Simulated scan of single mutants.
Amino acid sequence: MCEAFKDAIRAAGYAPPDIITTGKIIAFAGLNKPKTNKAARCFLFPDRRGGWFQDFTTGLFEVLMWLH
């Protein structure tokens, strides 16, 4: 599910972090920001059945759930 999660982040126009660890909030670059920017966050649920990502500069907040 990690690749599906990264794909959803990409589909929203963002560059997802290279490594996404389950159960940990990870900061990454906001929309159209340099890699050094850390305005966005993502969280992959420990059971890997969903997660969320957000961007503090745009106000975007997305929640994703998989039924597998």
Rank of each mutant, 00 (worst) to 15 (best):
P46T: 03
K24A: 06
P34W: 12
M65F: 13
G50P: 11
K38M: 08
T57H: 09
A29N: 14
R10W: 07
M65Y: 08
A40I: 04
N32F: 14
P46G: 09
K35D: 08
T58R: 02
T58E: 01
I9R: 07
F43W: 11
W66A: 01
I19K: 12
R41M: 11
G51M: 05
F28K: 06
F53N: 04
R49W: 03
A27L: 05
V63W: 04
R41E: 05
D47S: 11
F61P: 00
T58S: 13
D47N: 15
Q54H: 01
E3P: 06
A4D: 14
P16E: 02
L31H: 15
G51H: 02
R48N: 13
C2N: 14
M65P: 00
I19G: 00
R10V: 13
F53M: 05
A27D: 11
K24N: 00
F5Y: 13
I20C: 11
K38N: 02
T22G: 03
I9V: 10
C2T: 12
W52M: 05
A15V: 10
I19F: 12
F43Q: 02
K6Y: 13
F61G: 03
R10C: 07
T58I: 08
L60Q: 14
K35P: 02
F5H: 13
C2P: 00
K24I: 05
T57R: 11
K24S: 03
K33M: 11
D7F: 00
N32C: 01
F45E: 05
I25K: 15
A8D: 11
F45L: 07
K6H: 13
K6S: 06
E62A: 12
F61E: 14
I26D: 05
G13W: 10
L44K: 06
N37T: 01
A40W: 02
W66T: 01
L60S: 07
F28E: 06
L44D: 05
N37V: 09
W52S: 10
D47Y: 01
K33D: 05
L67K: 15
W66C: 10
Q54I: 03
W66V: 03
L64Y: 15
R10E: 08
R48Q: 15
Q54V: 01
V63D: 12
A15W: 07
P34T: 10
I19H: 12
D55A: 05
N32G: 08
R41Q: 09
F53D: 01
L60F: 04
L60R: 13
Q54E: 14
A12L: 04
I26Y: 10
R10F: 07
D47P: 02
G13I: 01
H68F: 09
I26G: 08
D47W: 09
R49E: 06
F61R: 15
Y14N: 05
P16A: 07
C42K: 06
A4P: 00
W66I: 02
I25A: 14
E62P: 00
A8I: 07
F5R: 10
T22D: 13
D47C: 04
F56Y: 09
K6T: 02
